[in-house]
């Protein structure tokens, strides 16, 4: 399967963890994604922008194999998810975490059971499960909500529980769908800091959908300092392990680094990032 060494974006030919090749998908004669092609490398975080309805959530669901493309191929961790039968996908999905746009927590389970869900399914011993659930919940600073039900939490807390649920098994790839959507700037920054921490401490690869440009730029210009336990700006400009992708009407109109994004001459992109 996948090599053990983390190339972290510095290796001459870094390993591709997600690749879309000419992916197309339509719903009821309406094309949502057209000729979408891109690559995500190991250790890299790709920030996905696009106006509402441009197909960002659909793209993440395709990567997870929750939807099937009409045409094109999707490779994830070296396996072709676009043609894989559902029964085989379950195994692959255990290496991928996903945070849904609306959190999608199991509302009849407690926070603890939600976060532990995957570990219980994998028959992890109870002691280890408890330990890892506590670890994941303290990562998002929600240890005290273990026994609560999702309906008793605020939207931002639910989002953080969803992040804890996605990271608890330390997946190689994480797909975040609008982790900061509809939240205040302070909570948003807390969440972005969590993602930076996840990226820099565990070297996970990620696709991150967001509406907030500044989230993307914080991702690109900060790193996590483990000694000080906080996020800090990188010394010279930008992080090489953060890239950007912009979708417009289901087409990729930009795919590149923060530098390239700032230097873009495309009118639409200039307007978008201004």
């Amino acid at each position: 399967m996948i090599g053990e060494t983390s190339t972290n974006g510095h290796h001459p030919s870094p390993e591709v963890v997600i690749e879309f090749r000419d992916v197309e998908l339509g719903f009821d004669q309406h094309l949502v994604l057209r000729e979408v092609s891109f690559r995500l490398f190991r250790g890299e975080t790709k920030v996905l922008f696009g106006v509402a309805g441009s197909g960002k959530s659909v793209l993440l669901k395709l990567a997870m194999g929750l939807l099937k493309p009409d045409s094109g191929t999707i490779m994830v961790l070296g396996q072709e998810v676009s043609s894989m039968p559902e029964a085989e996908l379950f195994e692959l999905r255990r290496n991928i975490g996903m945070v849904f746009q609306e959190s999608a927590l199991f509302d009849s389970l407690t926070v603890e059971e939600n976060v532990a869900f995957r570990l219980i399914e994998e028959h992890t011993p109870p002691d280890e499960t408890r330990h890892r659930v506590e670890e994941a919940l303290s990562f998002v600073e929600l240890q005290h909500t273990m026994q609560k039900f999702p309906s008793q939490l605020s939207g931002g807390m639910r989002r953080r529980v969803a992040i804890a649920r996605a990271i608890v098994s330390h997946p190689e790839v994480i797909l975040y769908d609008s982790p900061t959507g509809g939240l205040d700037p302070i909570t948003s920054t807390t969440i972005v800091e969590l993602l930076v921490k996840q990226r820099d401490v565990y070297q996970t690869s990620a696709l991150m959908v967001t509406h907030r440009l500044q989230d993307g730029f914080i991702m690109a210009t900060h790193r996590y300092n483990q000694e000080k336990q906080q996020m800090e700006p990188v010394d010279h400009g930008v992080n090489t392990n953060t890239s950007f992708l912009i979708l417009r009407d289901g087409k990729v109109i930009f795919d590149g680094s923060a530098h390239e994004l700032r230097g873009s001459t495309d009118e639409y992109i200039k307007e978008y990032i201004s």
Binding site: L66, L89, F90, F100, A104, F106, D107
Partner: peptide, 17 residues
């Protein structure tokens, strides 16, 4: 209700059939 709140998809995403 699980279907419309994406809990079914979430379960699939967590690797459970």
């Amino acid at each position: 209700s699980m279907k419309v709140t994406e809990q079914i998809d979430a379960m699939r995403a967590l690797g459970t059939d």
